[in-house]
């Protein structure tokens, strides 16, 4: 709670960042984001790009699961739709890479809306199973429609170029990824300041009351699927042009589960949480791998075990969050901020 600060107009009161501390924090963050590529090594730049794509994917999933309460296990498949659409448009039809990205996102929105239709009748776990069907069906199509997707072999996408400059270097694509991430962040935050976002949250909290307040459940559930899949498709499309190779193995059920873990650990129904979860779930495996390598000298057997250790730690972390901090890292972050807001007068 902020106390002692009074707002003189609704405009001020409704602003997102009300205190100087909040604005300064944002400014520092932006500065960091802008300067990072200039001093980071290639390794960290790659990580930053991975996090950026994960952030976009996590925000997309959070809109559907965290904010609207519609559980989805189809994340991997929807990313695949984005990636393959973008890849195919550029590789087979010569569409410029930058144009293929929004088109792919739109197409993913369409597919997502279609697979969102069961949400009109199903809730909770039943809906989760229905979206699992989306995951299975889409991956089946991707691996079997050889003529278009390349089947189980990877689809190779031409190198993205802008004015003759190769774009898929870590440095250049950093701007594409993080530019998109910032844009999506702003739009998502805005969405949840208006009646659209409120309708989503209302449906999550109490769908019957929502309908009685005049919210068309049909329309808004499908809209949540559409917007969510648009953003998820965007993440997939970016991945396609960043890697210049699209491989079905990157979009399996594991991916769906990993993204769910991301938003649970980060914080359901929170944009900040999507950032924290995406960073955490990208950095943790990297950290484990590095640790494993470092320990290889003394424990040679450890290298083969790394994937299993990763899985075990993931599982453990998710369980810990579910039990002890169901609001995720975002809650911890908030607690820290609250502590320092009153600092040094807190006790």
């Amino acid at each position: 709670m902020i106390s002692g600060i009074y707002y003189t107009s609704y405009e001020q009161d409704m602003a997102l960042r009300k205190t100087p501390a909040q604005r300064i924090r944002l400014a520092i963050l932006i500065l960091l984001l802008l300067s990072f590529p200039f001093f980071a090594s290639r390794y960290y730049l790659t990580l930053a790009n991975q996090i950026g794509i994960a952030v976009i994917g996590a925000i997309g999933l959070n809109i559907l699961v965290g904010y609207t309460g519609q559980i989805s296990l189809g994340q991997g498949a929807f990313m695949a739709v984005g990636a393959y659409t973008a890849g195919i448009l550029t590789a087979h039809y010569g569409v410029p890479w930058w144009a293929s990205i929004p088109v792919a996102a739109l197409f993913t929105a369409l597919v997502g809306t279609f697979f969102g239709l069961p949400s009109l009748r199903l809730k909770g776990l039943y809906l989760a199973i229905a979206t699992l069907a989306a995951q299975v069906i889409i991956l089946w199509i991707v691996t079997h429609w050889k003529a278009v997707t390349g089947g189980v072999e990877a689809l190779v996408v031409p190198t993205p170029k802008l004015f003759g400059v190769k774009m898929n270097t870590d440095f250049n694509f950093y701007w594409v990824i993080w530019g998109t991430a910032v844009l999506i962040t702003i739009m998502t935050v805005n969405l949840f300041r208006t009646h659209y976002g409120r309708a989503f949250v209302a449906i999550r909290d109490q769908d019957i009351a929502a309908s009685v307040m005049g919210i068309d459940l049909f329309r808004y559930k499908l809209l949540a699927f559409a917007i969510s899949s648009f953003v998820v498709g965007l993440a997939g499309a970016l991945l396609a042009h960043y890697r210049t190779i699209v491989n079905w193995e990157r979009f399996t059920m594991d991916v769906s589960v990993t993204y769910l873990a991301m938003i649970i650990i980060g914080g359901l129904g929170s944009v900040t949480g999507s950032y924290l979860g995406a960073a955490f779930m990208t950095l943790l495996p990297a950290l484990i791998t590095n640790l494993g390598r470092a320990m290889k000298a003394s424990f040679p057997a450890i290298e083969g075990l790394i994937p299993f250790i990763q899985l075990a730690i993931f599982g453990l972390v998710i369980i810990i969050f579910l039990i002890f901090e169901s609001e995720g890292l975002n809650k911890i972050w908030k607690d820290i901020k609250d502590y320092f807001r009153l600092w040094p007068f807190s006790y």
């Binding site: 949250v201 209302a202 909290d205 109490q206």
Partner: peptide, 27 residues
Amino acid sequence: ELFRHMTVLDNLLAGAHIHMKSNLLAS
């Protein structure tokens, strides 16, 4: 049957849903 995780303000604003007209893009 309130929207339990929303603030009082947001609950009331949600009550005014049918009167809000800005479209998706504007939002």
